[in-house]
Computed example of a mutant assay.
Amino acid sequence: MSNWSAENVPVLDIIELALCHRRFNCSAAQKYIGYSPVVSLEEGVALTAKSTQLARESSFSSYSDTDEESKVHKLLGGGKVAEILLWRNEQRTFTCFLLLVFIHYWFFLSGRSFLSSLAQLLLMIAAALWGYSILPPTM
């Protein structure tokens, strides 16, 4: 069993893995289970190109300018969560994304136990609130 963790992998290996080209071959599936693609590669590329052209020409790109809510917006409840998940306010969405990345790192990738991570986070919040409390009301 390998003992893989993020600390054991050099950064250059991660970058190389992210930048490498991947080509998938379905010949084994064709040979052993009789797989045949529903759409040929050429037809798939043509359909994809056609759909992206339709998306550019349609009202999807200018949808955010209208007042009508989308079905997805309604299904998500139509509130702040929907606005964030649908990237309607990009600054707020990016801030939430960075916050989630920070929380993920803080609790899961830092190598500390959950309780020690929680204790350090609460200590930082308490210190920040104390610092805020000693600021003058007007600057």
Rank of each mutant, 00 (worst) to 15 (best):
A28L: 15
L122G: 07
F114M: 08
E68I: 06
S5E: 04
Q53L: 13
H104M: 13
E43N: 10
A6W: 11
A46N: 08
F24S: 13
L109D: 11
S40Y: 00
R23H: 11
S133G: 02
H73G: 06
L17R: 15
L99V: 02
E57G: 07
N89M: 03
L75W: 06
I134W: 06
L41P: 00
M139P: 02
M124E: 07
T95V: 09
H21W: 10
T95Q: 15
I33H: 04
L118P: 02
F60T: 04
L100E: 15
K71R: 12
L98S: 05
L98G: 01
M1C: 12
L41V: 08
E90M: 11
R56A: 12
K50I: 00
S113R: 03
A49W: 00
L54P: 00
F108A: 10
G111Q: 03
A29N: 03
A119Y: 05
F108G: 02
I14R: 11
L129A: 12
V9M: 13
S117V: 08
S61A: 11
S116G: 00
S58Q: 02
K71N: 15
T95R: 13
N89H: 04
W4C: 10
F24D: 11
W4V: 15
D67N: 10
V72W: 01
A29Y: 04
G131H: 05
T52K: 13
A119H: 05
A55R: 14
V101Q: 07
G78W: 01
N8D: 09
A82M: 03
E16F: 10
L75A: 14
S116V: 07
L118K: 03
W106L: 01
E83T: 04
F97E: 06
S64N: 04
W106H: 06
A18K: 13
F97R: 11
K50S: 13
S116N: 06
V81A: 12
F94Y: 11
D67M: 06
L76Y: 02
C20G: 09
S51H: 04
